[in-house]
């Protein structure tokens, strides 16, 4: 019988613990497919965050480490500076990367640390049960913004990609989404580039993946994907925000 669809080699057999309809599964798969396609499963080292993806170390088949909350880019820096021949990536959520770990994010970008950062932005804290994230939209209702995010009280959501693109340091900063097939295909292309950049020694590459959290948004998976399109993407537009080497290769 012909195999028409199979699990990437870079994922283990451990079943995901993610909620029904959670796009983490898609994003894990995209990263794993890219690792397979680039033939780097033997040299890749992944850094898991604190948040929903905390147990990513069980799912990726490459060597893995679990970092303290927000510190994944610092941990990745330590690994990469010791083992520059390995491909080092972090996989982080919005609370981890854009709140508690903002300093580590900005400074690893400023150093153009030769690592790949996968940043999953679903505008909410999932693991702790749906609190306001640094990327929660104005007016968004969460457990800790029960009357909707009041920007006069707790400030505005942070557009991480746009902000990092203002830095001289990073090689590549792009935002993608995984709410439909077209966007998923594009996301894979961009993630692949972020890994290729590292292999070519170009430096810090961050892919912000606009994702969804049906459980904590209180929506069906389908409605959540629609909300990504109608509410998230207007605030967080898809695009390449920085690509230092653009146009260099043909």
């Amino acid at each position: 019988m012909a195999v028409v669809f199979e699990k990437p080699k870079s994922l283990t057999d451990v079943p995901f613990h993610y909620c029904p309809g959670c796009p983490h599964g898609i994003i894990h798969r995209l990263v794993a497919e890219v690792i397979d396609e680039l033939g780097i499963e033997g040299t890749a080292i992944g850094v898991a965050p604190v948040g929903c993806a905390v147990m990513a170390y069980d799912y990726f088949a490459c060597d893995m480490i679990e970092a303290p909350h927000g510190r994944a880019p610092a941990v990745a820096t330590g690994i990469k500076r010791c083992r520059p021949e390995n491909v080092v990536f972090t996989y982080q959520g919005d609370g981890d990367l854009a709140s508690i770990g903002m300093a580590e994010t900005v400074h690893s970008a400023a150093r153009n640390e030769n690592i790949t950062v996968i940043f999953v932005n679903n505008a909410i804290y999932g693991m702790t049960g749906g609190q306001m994230a640094p990327t929660s939209l104005p007016g968004q209702v969460t457990q800790t913004s029960p009357y909707g995010r009041d920007v006069n009280h707790c400030g505005w959501p942070i557009r991480v990609s746009e902000m990092l693109a203002t830095l001289e340091g990073p090689e590549y900063v792009a935002r993608v989404a995984v709410n439909n097939v077209k966007n998923v295909k594009n996301a894979k292309k961009v993630i692949k580039k972020a890994f290729e950049n590292q292999i070519a020694g170009k430096g810090f590459s961050l892919v912000e993946v606009v994702s969804a959290c049906p459980t904590n948004w209180g929506m069906t998976p389908k409605a959540a994907l629609e909300w990504v399109e109608s509410d998230m993407l207007p605030y967080y537009p898809i695009g390449v925000y920085k690509d230092r080497s653009a146009g260099e290769e043909k």
């Binding site: 480490i65 970092a67 610092a74 820096t77 330590g78 500076r81 400074h107």
Partner: peptide
């Protein structure tokens, strides 16, 4: 950040 870089390097 520095202690976490140590953590990464030690793990390596």
């Amino acid at each position: 950040a520095s202690i976490n870089m140590v953590y990464g390097a030690a793990a390596a």
